[in-house]
Amino acid sequence: MDLTTIVQILDSMMRLSTPLIFACLAGLFSERAGIFDIGLEGKMLASAFFSAATAAVTGSVLLGLLAGLTAATLLAMVHGVASITFRGNQLISGVAINFLASGFTALIGQNWFQLGGRTPSLSGDGRFLPVDLPFVETIAGIPFLGKLYGELISGHTLLVYLALPTVLLSWWILFRTRFGLRLRAVGENPEAVDTGGLSVSALRFQATLICGLLCGFGGAYLSTGMAAGFIRDMTAGKGFIALAALIFAKWRPGYALCACLLFGLLEAIAIRYQNIEIEGIGTVPLQLMQALPYILTVIILAGFVGKAIPPRAGGIPYVKER
């Protein structure tokens, strides 16, 4: 494996990790506040559809992004109303949201564009285009760094560059601000937060809202950044991989980034090599690579490699004493 191949694989890892990072951070906010969310997938899908559809009709990717964020946030609010206001089962609500997004986008997509559930191909201002960072030309001459900078670091879309600062920002919000402290408290011990005179519902709704927005970014990136348009069920389990990454990272932002990069790398390798030959072991089939994030997560969950302990009040509706 030469340098070019490695750079190409890492480059595709960056692109494939981006939606995972957004969705994983979305889950982080929600679950840290005590709201389980297995509807990341559905929210991303809804955002992917509405951003691509809006971008296709208006020709503006920013309007598309706005539409995507709105769609994902609306679904997040449904989840909030079901699991906070009506104290319903958060997991069942998540399942419903996934189906709602999957069915609704395919139904409306076919109805609007008659392309078998796809949106028209986006071009020009209709999608996020690669951004060339400064000095690519200048450094290009330097043997190793030039390639690394020019092909790996430069030339991604805006949303990819947005993903990394978002990780930092999430960490800062969750662990260095008063709001973050309260958010984490509401996920561990809502009674204490309530006793402190804060509204558990309001905090949880805020977390759900942030979750929706972040899913919106992830979904918009899928259809307007990574691809040039929406195709049916294009999230293809990415929301669940993000969920897996969240558990893998044990609900911590820095580790979440690493987990998302790892799962992105696995996907990049699986796409590049259909079957991998490893000396002495034999062929590693493509399907094993695809299943690896899930298998790793089960192993982590099983507690064989350090135990993954979710926020203590996760999944339990808060009932104020009457």
Partner: peptide, 20 residues
């Protein structure tokens, strides 16, 4: 896909929004 939408709404109302 209309059926998937109906299915989702049934899960939503009969499951998650039961209290509503």
């Amino acid at each position: 896909e209309m059926i998937v939408v109906i299915q989702a709404l049934v899960i939503l109302f009969a499951g998650a929004l039961d209290n509503m």
